[in-house]
Amino acid sequence: MAKRIEVSGLHAYYGGVHAIEDISMTIEPRSVTAFIGPSGCGKSTFLRTLNRMHEVIPGARVEGKVLLDDEDLYGPDVDPVAVRRVVGMVFQRPNPFPTMSIYDNVAAGLKLNGVRRKSRLDDIVEESLKGANLWNEVKDRLNKPGAGLSGGQQQRLCIARAIAVQPQVLLMDEPCSALDPISTLAIEDLIAELKSRYTIVIVTHNMQQAARVSDRTAFFNIAGVGKPGRLIEIGETSKIFTKPEQKATEEYITGRFG
């Protein structure tokens, strides 16, 4: 299920603004890769290029290659819709569909994929909610609106919705930044469980979180205001946090800027 991502020479733009510059990296399957860096360094933009969500913003475009196993996501015949069905995404703020029930939220992606049979939908919804550690809390109110859950539950609902379509990769854009510490812990535990099955990429502002959940960490930085973001270094999380190769990385993780 999990696939390796290889990025080479990737640039992203918003209209005339060069947002990220020449990024190359390999993201290993069945592991958690964390992106850290100061605000505006392009880590979220880079994350969104991995499932072609970057280009939904008017005027935004991408250059370079993103290989999922051996397939280029930016190849000429590739449909971005198909890419997003394989590379799932969880956003910064929980965004369940407000008019839909908990059940329908989880089933939404399945229905897009043409799953119609009720029994199969029931099975996958249960499995996904269990996978997101939410089943026990909502099994008696699956037909209630998803918007009635707490923030942390909503975020787990969004994770359930993302994994219901069995993606190869799960992208998380600061999934805990709008949550309280207990919910954050629940999501972090969940990430640890999910990594046995998925390739997980998480953007986080919280360095302790990166240290806790990730196997590898990538540090992004900008040379100055208006300059494009760059990848400074990527490596084993333990190594990045103890003896990074670059001075900027060390200064950032020790709290000297950012």
Binding site: V56, V83, R84, R85, M89, P96, A108, L112, A162, V165
Partner: peptide, 9 residues
């Protein structure tokens, strides 16, 4: 909401 739907494919 729009991005939630698009990200689901």
């Amino acid at each position: 909401h729009v991005e939630a739907a698009l990200a689901l494919g």
